[in-house]
Simulated scan of single mutants.
Amino acid sequence: MSTTALTACTNTEKDPERYPDKYVNSEMEYKSSFGDMVEIMKSYFTTDRAEPTPTFDLPVNTITAQQLIEETEDVVYRIGHSSVIMKLDGQIVMADPVFSDRASPVQWAGPKRFHQPPISLEALPEIDVIVISHDHYDHLDKASVKALANKTSHFIVPLKVGNYLTKWGVPENKITELAWWESHEVNGIEYTLTPTQHFSGRGLTDRDSTLWGSWVIDSKEAKVFFSGDSGYFGGFAEIGEKYGPFDFTMIETGAYNKLWSQIHMFPEQSVQAHIDVKGKVMMPIHNSTFDLSMHDWHEPMNKALEISEERGVTMVSPEIGERLEILNPTPVKQWWKQ
């Protein structure tokens, strides 16, 4: 199913069913109270952790604009957390670009980066497409969007996320909004928004007012899956049936805890999600950049590797900024160990 670009500022007037006041998950209703937040904050400040942040400088490989422009293979680079740059069919595609120092409404407080991005916003070349999974601060970064507004040809986002983009300077004709299971093609690459089990909101009063999701990106040579954020649910198997197998998956593996287990996966669930969508090679994301939970910073990668080996899953772990060929990935390396 292909859609046309949908303007963001008047979308609620067009179709109340498509643009409701609140969006809901397909399998469960996620609710949290003030008491839940108090319990989370208490746990965050009282949990004893050996290494909440790295004790050494993480390896970061510098990326240049010329490198991205001249690349001829289908490749992926981790920028940090869930931010990635891909080169697919000769086009530069980004997912959830977050370049700010903190994943927070303000830059003087909140989770601070463990490392700098491997390329600056200013140094990036022209971007063909940016996809956004949802509106949380560690996935939708206002400063990054504003900087990329005039050097990106197209933004593809879940329903009503486009409202943020237009406020931040992205022209409406560059924005396409999609509902779950809808697709949009740009220069021969098809982008499909698929469900996740999560929620949205950037403040106290806008809970679930925008849609969230994952991305199926189907290019000429490679088909990839970008999970966004999600708890484990039956939707992964449905995505696998509809769109699998995938040459490469980028699966959320990090910032998990029993206090919010419905909306973020533990590593064993992340590996199972990769299996469910029928992935061939798995790259864990959503880790190693911000301290967003109560586990040690390196635990997600350690556990993902251990479980993937037990389950016969091919996992890769490129350093930040390291070039990785999607169809010919390099073996796993444990760069998170000093």
Rank of each mutant, 00 (worst) to 15 (best):
S317T: 05
V131M: 00
D74F: 12
I251P: 00
E70K: 07
G244A: 14
N163C: 04
Y30I: 13
E185L: 05
V145R: 01
W260D: 01
D229C: 02
L148Y: 11
E182M: 03
L58E: 02
K333L: 12
G240E: 06
F99W: 14
L305G: 04
E126N: 05
K333F: 00
A273F: 01
G231L: 00
Y137N: 11
L140F: 08
V38S: 06
S214V: 03
E39N: 07
T55W: 08
W168I: 00
T210W: 12
K242Y: 01
G201I: 15
A123N: 04
I63R: 13
M282I: 06
S293T: 08
V131R: 02
T314K: 11
E13V: 08
A222H: 08
K142C: 13
M282C: 14
P54A: 07
F236W: 11
N11C: 12
T55E: 13
S261K: 06
L204T: 14
D15F: 05
V271F: 03
T166V: 02
H198P: 00
E13M: 06
R207N: 05
K22T: 12
A222R: 15
D89A: 15
F199M: 02
F236G: 02
P125Y: 10
V131Y: 04
T210M: 08
F56Y: 10
K146H: 11
K337F: 00
